[in-house]
Amino acid sequence: MAILVYTEHWDGQFKKSTFELVSYASKLAEAANTQTVALSIGEVEEDNLRQLADYGADKIISVNQQNLKYVDNQAYSSVIQQVADQEEADILVLAHNNTGKALAPRLSVRLQAALGSEVNQLPASLDPFMVNKKVFSGKAFANVKLKTDRKILTLAQNSFGIYENTQEPVIEKFEPTLSDDQLQTQVAEVEKHRDKLLLTDAELVVSGGRGMKTPENWDKLKALADELGAALACSRPVSDEGWRPHEEHTGQTGKIIAPDLYIAAGISGAIQHIAGVSAAKYIVAINTDQDAPIFDVADYGIVGDAMKVLPELTEAFRKARS
């Protein structure tokens, strides 16, 4: 018995989201009275691997093969399955990000394990195995029973928190068996947004909607974001118009985020937009229309012209910091 957590890395580095995931897995292991095994695929130095033990990993398994440089969904799910079998893992935990969403359903079929996707807390009970998840894009939550012996969970990002729980880990290498026909996709080119704070990782987010009127007005949002160390986001029409890149679009059909603070300027608060930001801990709305639906979901609101309020707010933050 064990909980196996798949820990993704970025050029050999883990992120806070990885530590949150390991924290979740080890709390789950504690509840299930078993151990936490972390799996890393690709080139990660031992010092970095060791970090996983700070959040509760008892055992760390590293797979490093040249042909696993890029995520091939078939090959990666095969490797994870091999490790799950070796460790007799009965619960697998992955992040509910692009990679986790790609691998978890494949593993569900491979292991005949029920998938609880985008869970946001520990299971309410282990027998029966009950998890809570968002449904209807955040308009409701469901209690879901996972009926199989083995289970797979994907954890919604920024939903659980990071808990230190230092272990003296066992670190092992694992050599998977992979045949060539398990590597059927090829990555020809990679483009990385270097040095840019990732929207899904950001604790503070500054976002603009159609009420910002022109792409030039984004310099006001950017000034505030720079002052706060926040990431930028936008509503869908803004990215559809090409004012901002589509990676910044939040909402039901865009990114789903859970920052500590979401500042929405010139955004009406359409239900499809809220679907992407309702998990934010605090929402600030700046809008000229006092009846805009964004004020129904916001914690703090300012009825006013964003072009005027944003620079004043930036200035006020600057003063407060110095």
Partner: peptide, 30 residues
């Protein structure tokens, strides 16, 4: 067969009302 069962549903808890801040006094928001 099915592997999971949706047992029941709940609606999110209502949020407390939004605190309105005077646009002439953004310092209060900070």
């Amino acid at each position: 067969d099915t592997l999971v069962e949706f047992v029941d549903y709940e609606l999110p808890q209502a949020k407390p009302p939004c605190k309105m801040i005077d646009p002439e006094n953004v310092q209060e928001l900070v």
